[in-house]
Structure formats: C-alpha cells, structure tokens
Amino acid sequence: MSQERTGVATLKGNPITLIGPQLQPGSQAPDFQLNKALTEVVSLADFAGKVKLISVVPSLDTGVCDAQTRRFNEEAAKLGDNVVILTVSVDLPMAQARWCGAAGVDKVVTLSDYKTREFGKSYGVLIKELQLLMRSIFVLDANNTIQYVEYLGEMTEHPNYENAIAAVKKLV
C-alpha cells in the first residue's frame, strides 16, 4: 500500500490526496517505465548523462498544462543538448502526439503514465480521487540525483518556471 498524503494539495480549493512519498533534493530519483508511444517504453536510463527537467501535468488538454508545456518547449531550445525536458501525464500517447503536433511542440519529450500510474506513485504525484498526476517539477542531474523539486499546492496554478530553469542552468 502506497503512502497517502492529505492536506498538501487542492483542486480549485478542494482537498485532494496525493499517493506516494514527497521526494526531496539530494535523493536519488526513482526509475520509471513510461510510454513514449503505445508500444515504446522508456526509463531513466534512456536519458543517461543528461540533465532532466521533468514537468508533470494532469492533462495536456487543459489551459495551465498547455501553457506549462509550451513554456518549457521554448526554454528547451535555449538549454542545449545536455538537457532533456520530459512532460509526463496520464494522457494516452496518441493524444500527447496529437496535442504536440497541433501546438507545434517539438523540443519536449512527452511520456505517458496511463498504464500503471507507477511514476505517479513513486514520485508522489498520483491524485487518488482523479487518477491524474499533480502538477509538479523535478530537476535531476546527469546522475539522476534530484536537485530541485516543486510540488504545487493548488492544481490550477502555474509552477515557478524561473526557479526550475535556474536549477537546470546550474547543472549545465
């Protein structure tokens, strides 16, 4: 049974329960198995040696998630080849690909946790009531040590883009 965290997050002011631990800077990032496409699965090892910004969103088809992913796509172009930006949601891989095509998003890598929600549980971002992922940001160094974490307290708010990008820039 995974740990449940209450009183740490809301959706439009209403309390929601997050499943999994609250990860801290300095700890090793949990490995993951996420779908890049319906039949293609990737793990942390697929991004070995790169600084990783993991942008977690509930669904690309909502306003804040759309804006968050577009913003990190713009930033990705400026950060160089040693950085990869991963956007993780439970949207189906086909929906992620369709959204990226329509939005012209081509620098971030979209990954789906739709099958098992294991990423959500191990990163402490699975919303029990909705089975979606809570908006959050994780910055990992090239050795997969967590250097920066932002768990948002309110699902409809934007993350602190400047702090996340600054954390990445310190590592490159």
Rank of each mutant, 00 (worst) to 15 (best):
T69D: 10
K36H: 02
V125Q: 03
Q22D: 12
P58H: 08
G49A: 07
S112K: 05
V51W: 14
F119L: 03
S122Q: 01
Y114G: 07
L38Q: 15
V84Q: 06
G120M: 05
E118L: 13
R135S: 07
F119V: 00
V105I: 14
E154M: 12
V149E: 00
V172K: 11
G63A: 14
L86N: 03
I19A: 09
D141S: 09
Q3M: 12
N143V: 07
T110R: 04
N35G: 02
L111P: 10
I165G: 06
Q147V: 02
I85L: 09
W99E: 07
L60F: 10
L18Y: 08
K52N: 12
E40K: 06
V172L: 15
S89E: 01
M94C: 09
G13H: 00
F32G: 05
A76T: 08
L53W: 14
L130R: 12
N144K: 00
L111V: 11
G49E: 01
P58C: 08
I146M: 00
L44P: 01
D81S: 09
I146C: 06
L11H: 12
D91L: 08
K128L: 00
S59K: 11
D113Q: 11
K107V: 13
T116S: 14
G104I: 13
T87G: 11
A164Y: 14
L130F: 10
A166P: 11
K115Y: 07
E118K: 04
Q33W: 03
D31A: 04
M94P: 13
N143P: 10
V84L: 07
P21L: 07
R135L: 13
V56T: 05
V56Y: 13
T6P: 08
V41T: 00
K52C: 06
T10K: 00
V64R: 05
L92S: 10
E154T: 13
V168K: 12
A37M: 06
D141G: 14
I85V: 10
S122V: 13
R70S: 09
R71E: 15
L133F: 05
M1T: 09
S122G: 10
